[in-house]
Design a protein around this nucleic acid. Structure first.
Lengths: 341, 341
DNA sequence: CTGTTAGCGCCTTCAC
DNA sequence: GTGAAGGCGCTAACAG
């Protein structure tokens, strides 16, 4: 039975040296016993472990990071924590990284490239071993800083022609186009769109409209509202759309949450779905339409994106030299056709 | 017009010394110009600023932290990022801390005190200047570590008799009791509860039932389901409750999300609300019932909790000595009575 | 397998 | 207002 720790030894200004004294070995040996136990004899390991427990020592990673030039820190930037669309990604990312012994510095950019730039400068001071960014829109200064930092960078939730480094996501253009084609095939013609002013949402919207245009559908009323995406945004969007002359057959939404707001508003107006109004969403599983399980949607696997992003980073950490193996993972999407269309 | 930075100077192994050479001053002066500009002449400030821009220097906070014994880092532990109930709190917390020049290390505990303990040990290695924990349930080892670390600790989202240090939240017991009394006053007698197995939710539930018991209501069917709280949990919970003999008049839910699931299930079964079934939720504004705007709920201001937590920490950072001014902020709650009861 | 030496890059302190 | 010395706690690299 393990002994209890000594009664509240002292402050956390304990160092390797203190532990070394207690264990009767050199500081370096303590360091090894802690971080590379395979390099140390069983006996030493036990002595050190006991000394650590007895003193309540916690290794100082600031010093360790400075000396080894490795921080075991990964920065994650995302627009907001309020939108559950990124929650799965972050959770998966953090789970995997934590498991691998890394910690995560979170930065909320609020969909602003300028804010991202400011955060980036602050965060790079911590010398993170890697960075995960959401999306591919960054200021020129950000790109420069990132290049200078020389650490692995993952851009998640998007694919792009000019990646900074690694890419894990899917093509928003493809989503828009596929959605358009699918809905055209089902016979819809009077389209409308509700989107928040998020760059990726707008890009999906643009290629949707481009594809519609190629098929002769040119008049597409579109409501762009300010983030964050809430149910209320959906309600408001639909109200506005219905206030116009040509009422739409179908409304394509930039997120499931918005789509649910639309469905709620439609219900409260006695509109039948999909006869009077069809609705299309977009999102990952967790925000999937459970209030209205019948919501058709373009589904994206947020956890998968997070996990792949983590893997990509960890892989790079293991083989720091393999600089020129470009990583570009298309995580794809699935169009789920349900009763709302 | 400011000159552009020199073409990609080099890696981020730039140091104060490099900048000092370019600026023609000593390294120490560069440090001051960067962090305590008021101690330096205007001319020096300009020279240094220019040298920093030209080199692309980013100060190394590992070294800075080691030397100054301050990390400008705050650790935030929360159960999960999936549940939007904490999203506002984290957002407010991070906004305020970022503004004040601090960065945040996030830890997801998954509602597990053991996981929290493991994370804590890892995180303390970074020598954070402060920690924000969610809730007041921690292992004895965690409490010891925290005490030994000697840094400000905020326990958020709860009040407790035995705080580790500072407390920002509200009494879950009071929520349960108030809810019970309110609903009893409205004439309800056949109660039921759906809760996820989250300690705080269960405590609200217990005092609700205690108060009901004191008023002669003793039979209260309760469904406890595994986190995370989703709409589907609510649907499933109601299904189970309705499968029992005495169907309830009212179901009290541990979160708005669950309550909405209940409402959805009720709607799909043609139950009228509140005539056939009344529903009571709990949560912060952002998850408030917008699909069913008529949901009665106990409302908590998550942003306020986050902001107050940040303030409490920052205050402590400014006056590290004032150890014995106990901080205990009751952020309260509001019972919102709408059509669902 | 273990110990020694020499910094990592910055900030505290004290001198000028 | 500015500079010089020294050390924060740890780990690379080399010896033994």
């Amino acid at each position: 039975m393990p002994l209890p720790p000594l009664p509240l030894p002292k402050a956390s200004s304990l160092t390797l040296i203190d532990v070394a004294k207690v264990a009767g070995v050199s500081p370096m040996t303590v360091s090894r016993a802690l971080h590379r136990p395979e390099l140390v004899s069983e006996l030493t390991r036990v002595k050190v472990r006991e000394a650590v427990r007895a003193t309540g020592y916690v290794s100082n990673m600031l010093a360790g990071g400075l000396a080894s030039n490795k921080s075991r820190l990964v920065a994650i930037f995302l627009p907001t924590i309020a939108n559950s669309i990124f929650a799965d990604t972050v959770q998966a990312l953090m789970d995997r990284l934590t498991e691998a012994g890394y910690q995560t510095l979170l930065g909320l950019t609020g969909y602003s490239a300028e804010r991202e730039e400011a955060l980036l400068e602050a965060v790079l001071g911590r010398r993170p071993d890697g960075i995960v960014l959401t999306g591919t829109l960054h200021t020129e200064a950000s790109r420069l800083r990132l290049a200078q930092a020389g650490i692995p960078v993952v851009e998640a939730w998007d694919l792009s022609e000019a990646p900074i480094d690694m890419l894990v996501g899917f093509s928003h253009e493809q989503v828009g186009e596929t959605t358009a084609r699918h809905l055209l095939d089902k016979g819809y013609r009077r389209f409308s769109v509700i989107s928040i002013s998020d760059p990726r949402g707008l890009r999906r919207c643009h290629s949707l409209m481009a594809e519609l245009g190629r098929n002769g559908v040119t008049e597409v009323p579109i409501e762009v509202l300010a983030p964050p995406a809430t149910l209320e945004i959906g309600r408001e969007g639909l109200r506005r759309l219905l206030g116009q002359k040509n009422s739409p057959e179908i409304v394509v939404c930039s997120s499931d949450t918005i789509a649910q707001g639309v469905l709620a508003e439609a219900a409260s107006r006695g509109l039948r779905v999909p006869e009077d109004l069809a609705v299309m969403g977009f999102g990952d599983l967790s925000s999937a339409a459970q209030v209205y399980p019948a919501l058709s949607t373009v589904n994206v696997d947020g956890s998968h994106i997070g996990f792949q992003a983590a893997q990509a980073l960890l892989e790079r950490f293991k083989h720091p030299n393999s600089g020129e193996a470009p990583v570009r993972i298309d995580t794809g999407f699935r169009l789920i056709d349900r009763a709302s269309t």
